[in-house]
Design a protein around this nucleic acid. Structure first.
Lengths: 217, 217
DNA sequence: TAGATTGTTAATCGATTAACAATC
DNA sequence: TAGATTGTTAATCGATTAACAATC
């Protein structure tokens, strides 16, 4: 296997590059050097060049990087070129917010199914998509081509549902439940643990105020 | 300054420890060794001991760690002992979801104000809290003791509002807008960039399917 | 006391930064 | 061609893991 190893650190930075390049593109910037981008993003130019060169050379000596081209290449790497079918598992407050979030369709992520156990929401529509009973989820996954399942159910239901989702053939889970899901290693999981995030903020605030810990990078 | 330096990596792991210890406590576990916890959390026992010892010795040789005590100590470190007053800046889909999220009050984070520019939502209530006009935000911050502002407004409004929030005296921003906020270094910012998170998932899915990159830890 | 397990030092590993030759 | 800036190797820095002495 001759696959190039890409570290978690690099992967974590790619969406941020994509975001900044998208903004530069909006502002009709044609080219940018690693030095200029480094000032904008507050990282080192060296890191930018190292990061990009994990995927091959996108720049040109003496010129820098063509913004449009670089944006496109990083988009390809991130899989934004392909369309993705997403289901929402859980139509509570967070699920509803995701259903209406405009950035996802813009990036090619289409919500094609929403599922919940609550009879009060089943049959209602969220952003034009009908909420179906949770029982029908597996059949729906099998009959449609679902790439990603976003899980927004309560903690204790998440693992069981994740197993059903995986058994039905989904290979990517976007997990908003405050648990670490246990799935096979042919399935990728990305967690959004909002409470963890809030506690990190709380730590940093307490650390700053107390002066007890030096916590910055 | 004799403050102990705590790395970002360690801070990032604290909420996860807190979560696991909370679950152990729910299950009436009295003690746990770093070895047992390491199996549960899928990290090394060595890392657990190193992490805890950043803050002083919480364990006892030959015994391990007392779950209740350790949970309490990490809670203190994370600032969960104190009550926090939070305002929501932006009452759109995500803001509404946050207003109704039950985990936050449970951890001592009280939403005491919600602000929006949209006349359609101003005056309405979210989870019993009235949505106020954005104009009133700064006065509200000054008159109340606000610890944290959660920003869920569109990208282009985030920086301007962040400045107003900071000028009014808030020292912690929980940022859900897809931009990096520019604030002084006496203000802490924690980002929840959901699109970035989705793109990471998309990358990992594409990498796994294509076999082009070896991307796991 | 003997066994278990922490706290902590030392060794290893990986990621970031610096430097510079290659080249547009 | 000369100047600019990349791509890439080497040096540094930081984080993780291993090992073990301290001690409950």
């Amino acid at each position: 296997m001759s696959e190039k190893y890409i570290s978690k650190a690099v992967i974590g930075r790619l969406p941020r590059y994509y975001r900044y390049l998208g903004e530069l593109l909006e502002n009709d910037e044609e080219r940018i050097s690693s030095e200029e981008l480094s000032k904008l993003m507050k990282v080192t130019a060296s890191q930018i060049r190292q990061d990009f060169n994990n995927f091959g050379g996108f720049g040109q000596q003496g010129y820098g990087y063509n913004v449009k081209y670089l944006y496109g290449e990083i988009g390809k790497i991130l899989g934004v070129e392909q369309k993705h079918n997403v289901i929402l598992v859980g139509a509570g407050n967070l699920g509803s917010a995701l259903a209406k979030y405009p950035s996802f369709p813009k990036r090619g992520f289409t919500i094609s199914g929403i599922f919940d156990v609550n009879p009060d929401v089943i049959g209602k529509t969220l952003n034009g998509i009908m909420v179906r009973p949770m029982d029908e989820m597996e059949e729906f996954i099998v009959n449609n081509v679902i790439d990603i399942a976003a899980i927004t159910v309560p903690r204790d239901e998440a693992q069981t549902l994740a197993e059903k989702i995986v058994n039905a053939g989904v290979k990517a889970i976007w997990n908003f439940s405050p648990v670490d899901l246990n799935v096979g290693d042919d399935v990728v999981v990305e967690n959004v643990h909002m409470t963890d995030s809030l506690l990190k903020l709380s730590f940093n605030l307490a650390a700053m105020k107390s002066g007890k810990w030096d916590y910055r990078i």
